[in-house]
Design a binder for these strands. Structure first.
Length: 738
DNA sequence: GTAGGGTTAG
């Protein structure tokens, strides 16, 4: 046997040194060149064998040429371009040769080529595509999620009398599922005459991955009832369905089922069990399994890492991260996204920084999506903009995920123009891209524009979803478009097929309540088909505060506290209503109750980004290095405001403060004012002051910001928990409607 | 001589 340990290959001499003859020569299948093909470990070696085959003429035997193509296209060192070159040298490729190329492209990174080769085959091959050809071509269509193309193949298989081939039918189930058409997948499955285990597996997988975990589990039971023995692949999908359903009990049952039925455990199955445990919240079960797994790969480690991170146990998460054999980008992404999603955007950015410093792995699309979301939370536009440039420099394709994140980041960082620029620059806009743009316009108070975008979206034939409607209603709420809001709300289900959810009800209550239609808001709550949640009562309570309706406020508040007894926001709102109507006894009563129950008001916190770093201020904060300068600026501001007729609005104090002077003092120390003062001293006059506040802006701070924008001739952009306030020349973009 | 179904991060 020839050895390939050297890079230059010398083929063994043919036993009788005479050139081989082909066509009918059966010895060809054992020709030495062919066994060499199997031993190649690099494209270079393959090329040497190829050259020898050409020289000896072996290449012109279709069987031999196909082997060469298979090796160049399907091996670990595969090069499809090379395979294509080899293919093009073959004078008359047969069906098998065509199949090899179509198969190789189908599972490559360019499945579209597979379809093109299939079409070429129809033109150039004297034989018809066979059952193998179709399975490969259908696989390519699945990869591409090309519904129409696949349907075409489906029709062709029927015409070619291959309509009952089990391989083709199973591929079709998988294909329709990956196109998201569960209905067609099911129809093919139902019509499959003799279902084998793969048929069942395919359909279960389609349900599990298509957000129908319940159907997946039911089908598994049906499969059992039909006495089809499930295998390891079945169980992977069943576990995935348990994970999606967050059904730990059933998940545990499945694990014991696997043992009872002696389904052979392998790495993938163990990983699926790990994932199920983690998704169902039992990292303990996951850890027990992890410790006894004979083999672990990067997926096992990443799943454990995710388990700890999701539970907020970052100490253990970092320990797993450090212990993994290698940290791939997925591991970094777990950390960044879990920090970002649990409201720790600063930590997320710190991890991103570490990743940058470590040089490898390179951030991928998921990294950037999570990091942009963290920037959006913080209002960190410098880093956000940097990532935008990074994407352009890396010539990364802006897919819809990234586009959505960029629009969201720019909008939440106050740069609506940039958000629009991104929106206008892309070719493809899915429902999320449109919805993000509508949300951006809404939060900047441009409700009418938001609605115009909504109609453009409909014109573009993009179907709105629940998120779209939340944003549309939000736009109506921020701009006070009551009639429009009502119309959209009542059109949702009959016209667009989107059933109003709790968020939509909360928005609608907000729209009605805010505009003073408190009775209608109450009526809507009473008629809701789903039980109202804290957010719904919260919206009503907010409206009561705006319109000074103490009686209704107390009712809303008691409902709210019934559902969420520790909701400090409710106490604050009610207390504000009491304060507004001068009921100071009630204010102190509430205060006392909060103290006794150990409920603390979430401290107001404002942050401002100056030269790329984020500075945070709490109320009365004096921890900033420039604290002295900030406070003297505040004194100056107070004087200037007073001399311009400003009177502090004390109803915005939660605390009952005896001394009048103290009240003024507490107000002037609100975090947003500290941040604005810091902005005034550290930014050049041409730079707008961007402040992000964690709570809703207080009424007094709102008036102050308006005045400052005029007296100091500065633009102030304040983002509160709900929206943007853009102060310019004494006015706010919200028109004092918020 | 070829085939179909599976696990991690948004």
């Amino acid at each position: 046997m020839a050895s390939l340990s050297t890079s230059v290959i010398s083929l063994p001499r043919h036993p009788n040194s005479s050139p081989p003859t082909f066509s009918t020569d059966l010895r060809i299948s054992s020709h030495p060149a062919l066994s060499l093909v199997d031993q190649c470990t690099s494209i270079k070696q393959l090329k040497q064998v190829h050259a020898q085959m050409l020289r000896t003429g072996v290449f012109f035997d279709p069987y031999s040429a196909s082997k060469l193509i298979a090796a160049s296209a399907l091996s670990s060192f595969s090069s499809l371009d090379y395979a294509r070159q080899v293919f093009d040298q073959i004078p008359q490729p047969n069906v098998y040769t065509w199949n090899t190329l179509i198969r190789a492209y189908a599972s490559s990174s360019e499945p579209a080529e597979s379809i093109l080769v299939f079409l070429e085959m129809l033109d150039h091959c004297s034989e018809c595509p066979d059952k193998y050809t179709y399975t490969f071509a259908i696989k390519a269509a699945s990869e591409l999620r090309a519904l129409q193309v696949g349907r075409g193949f489906h029709g062709m298989t029927i015409k070619a009398s291959l309509g009952s081939d089990i391989y083709i039918l199973n591929s079709l189930v998988h294909f329709y599922g990956s196109c998201g058409d569960l209905d067609l997948a099911r129809r093919v499955f139902v019509k499959t005459p003799k279902k084998d285990v793969v048929s069942w597996n395919s359909m279960i997988t389609v349900f599990a991955q298509g957000n129908c975990p319940q159907e997946a589990l039911e089908l598994f039971k049906e499969m059992e009832a039909e006495n089809v023995k499930p295998n390891d692949v079945t169980m992977v999908s069943v576990l995935s369905a348990c994970a999606k359903k967050v059904d730990l009990e059933f998940g545990r049952w499945v694990c014991s089922y696997i043992q009872r039925n002696e389904i052979k455990e392998n790495l993938t199955l163990n990983n699926a069990m790990l994932d199920m445990y983690v998704k169902c919240g039992s990292v303990e079960d996951a850890k027990r399994l992890f410790d006894r797994m004979p083999e672990k790969d990067i997926v096992s480690w990443t799943t454990m890492l995710d388990g700890y991170a999701q539970l907020g146990n970052y100490e253990e998460a970092w320990r797993v991260f450090a212990a993994m054999p290698s940290q791939d980008i997925a591991a970094w992404n777990v950390l960044i996204s879990s920090y970002e999603q649990s409201g720790k955007p600063k930590e997320a950015l710190a991890v991103f920084n570490e990743l940058q410093k470590s040089k490898s792995p390179k951030p991928d699309e998921v990294t950037l999506v999570s990091t942009l979301a963290a920037c959006a939370q913080l209002g960190a536009i410098d880093l956000g903009g940097w990532i935008h440039v990074y994407i352009k420099k890396q010539v990364m394709k802006l897919n819809c995920h990234l586009t959505t994140s960029l629009i969201d980041m720019y909008a939440k960082c106050g740069d609506l123009d940039k958000a629009l620029e991104v929106f206008n620059s892309v070719e493809r806009r899915d429902v999320f891209v449109w919805s993000a743009m509508i949300a951006g316009l809404a939060m900047h108070g441009q409700g009418r524009d938001a609605l115009e975008f909504f109609s453009k979206m409909l014109e573009a034939k993009v179907k709105p979803n629940a998120v779209t409607f939340t944003n549309v209603l939000c736009a109506c709420s921020h701009t006070g478009l009551v009639d429009e809001g009502r119309t959209f709300f009542y059109q949702m289900e009959p016209v667009y097929g989107v059933v109003p959810g709790i968020k939509h009800y909360a928005c609608m209550v907000d729209i009605l309540g805010r505009s003073g239609n408190l009775d209608e808001a109450v009526e809507l709550i009473e008629k809701m088909p789903i039980p109202p949640t804290a957010s719904v009562w919260g919206a009503l309570l907010g409206a009561c505060k705006l319109h000074g309706n103490v009686v209704l406020a107390e009712k809303a508040c008691s409902h709210l506290l019934e559902l969420d007894p520790r909701n400090h926001g409710a106490y604050v709102l009610l207390s504000n209503i009491y304060a507004k109507t001068g009921k100071w006894d009630e204010v102190s009563g509430l205060r006392k109750h909060m103290r006794d129950a150990g409920i603390k008001k979430e401290p107001g916190c404002s942050s401002i980004e100056v030269n790329g770093s984020v500075h945070e201020f709490l109320v009365g904060d004096n921890s900033h290095p420039l604290c002295k300068e900030i406070y003297s600026k505040l004194d100056e501001m107070a004087l200037r405001l007073k001399s311009n007729g400003y009177v502090p609005n004390k109803s915005h104090l939660l605390q009952f403060v005896e001394e009048e002077d103290m009240k003024d003092h507490a107000l002037i120390l609100h975090s947003e004012k500290l941040a604005i003062a810091f902005g005034l001293i550290s930014l050049s006059p041409s730079q707008p002051i961007h402040v992000v506040k964690n709570l809703r802006v207080c009424g007094d701070c709102h008036s102050v910001a308006k005045l400052i924008s005029k007296l100091y001739d500065r633009e102030i952009l304040l983002r509160d928990r709900y929206r943007f306030h853009h102060f310019r020349e004494g006015h706010c973009s919200c028109n004092d409607y918020w």
